[in-house]
C-alpha cells in the first residue's frame, strides 16, 4: 500500500534538509523594519495564511470532529472499564486493568501507527460520506487511549463516593446494580468533571499527532501549507497554534460552566 504515514515521515525527513526556513534573525529584522513591534513575520506571508484560511478551517473542523468522536468512544469504553475496575473481580478486572496499563504506557504515536498499519482498520462507507481508514485509525487510537485514561477518572470518582451511599441505597430495597446505577453513578459523574475536562483538552491537543498517519487535520494542513510557501513557516504555525489555543480555551471554559452548573452544593470540594 502507498501509505500516507511513510509519506508524512518522508516529508519530515526531507523538510529537515530542504526547509531551512523562517529564520530567527530575519524574523526579528522584519519586526524592526515594519515598525509594528507587535507584528511578527512578513505581511505577505500573513496574506498567504489568511488566503488559505478556508483550507485550515476545514482542518480545524476535522480536528474538532476527531476530538468529539474519540472522546465519545473513550467514554463508551472507559466508563464501563472504570466500573469493572471498581466493582469487578477476577479475570475480567485484571484483563481490563492490564490493557489500561499498556494503553497508558505507550506513546500515542505508536498506538496510532499500530491502529493504522497493524489493525488495518478499513475505510467505512456510510453511503452519503465515507470515513477514510486514517480517520478510523485516528478515532480508534485516540479513543481507546482516552478510554484507558477515562477509566481511571471514573474509577477514582466511583470509589470516592462514600460506602454509606451504597448501603443507604440497598437499605431502601434497591439491588446492588440499581444502587450503583441510581445513587453512586450520578454522584461519581459529577465528581469526574474536572478530570474529564483535563482529558478533553489532552485529546484535542493530541489529535495533532495523527499527522503521523497523514490524516489532513489542522496541524497536517499547516504543515502542507508551509511546505508550499517556506517563508511563511512561522506565520502558519502561529496561526494554527492560535486556533488550537482558542479551541482548548473555549472547551475549558465550557466545561467549567458545566462543572459549576452541575456541582452538588458543598461536599464537592472535599
Amino acid at each position: 500500500m502507498s501509505d500516507p504515514g511513510t509519506l508524512a515521515l518522508a516529508a519530515v525527513a526531507s523538510a529537515a534538509t530542504d526547509l531551512p526556513t523562517g529564520d530567527v534573525l530575519a524574523t526579528l529584522a522584519s519586526v524592526g523594519e515594519s515598525g509594528d513591534w507587535w507584528f511578527i513575520g512578513q505581511p505577505a506571508d500573513w496574506e498567504f495564511v489568511f488566503g488559505n484560511a478556508d483550507y485550515l478551517g476545514i482542518g480545524a473542523l476535522l480536528t474538532i470532529g476527531l476530538t468529539i468522536a474519540s472522546i465519545l468512544l473513550g467514554f463508551l469504553v472507559g466508563f464501563p472499564a472504570g466500573a469493572v475496575e471498581v466493582y469487578g473481580d477476577g479475570l475480567l478486572e485484571r484483563a481490563v486493568s492490564t490493557v489500561g496499563v499498556v494503553l497508558r504506557g505507550t506513546p500515542i504515536v505508536v498506538i496510532l501507527i499500530v491502529m493504522y498499519f497493524v489493525v488495518g482498520v478499513p475505510q467505512i462507507n456510510l453511503g452519503i460520506a465515507s470515513i477514510s481508514s486514517a480517520m478510523t485509525a485516528g478515532i480508534m487510537g485516540l479513543g481507546l487511549r482516552s478510554a484507558a485514561y477515562q477509566s481511571q477518572i471514573f474509577r477514582a470518582a466511583l470509589s470516592s463516593v462514600d460506602d454509606g451511599q451504597l448501603e443507604a441505597g440497598r437499605s431502601l430495597g434497591l439491588s446492588r446494580f440499581e444502587a450503583v446505577r441510581h445513587v453512586v453513578v450520578p454522584q461519581a459523574l459529577r465528581r469526574s468533571i474536572p478530570g474529564f475536562q483535563n482529558e478533553f483538552t489532552i485529546v484535542l491537543k493530541d489529535t495533532s499527532i495523527v499527522f503521523a498517519i497523514g490524516l489532513a487535520e489542522l496541524l497536517t494542513r499547516g504543515y502542507n501549507l508551509f511546505s508550499e510557501q517556506t517563508t511563511a513557516v512561522l506565520e502558519v504555525i502561529l496561526f494554527i497554534s492560535a486556533i488550537y489555543f482558542v479551541l482548548t480555551f473555549t472547551t475549558n471554559r465550557a466545561l467549567d460552566y458545566l462543572g459549576d452548573h452541575y456541582a452538588i452544593p458543598e461536599g464537592e470540594s472535599a
Partner: peptide, 11 residues
C-alpha cells in the same frame, strides 16, 4: 498548556 506540543516543536 493550551497548544499541542507538536505545534510547539514545529515553531
Amino acid at each position: 498548556r493550551g497548544t499541542p506540543l507538536l505545534a510547539q516543536l514545529f515553531v
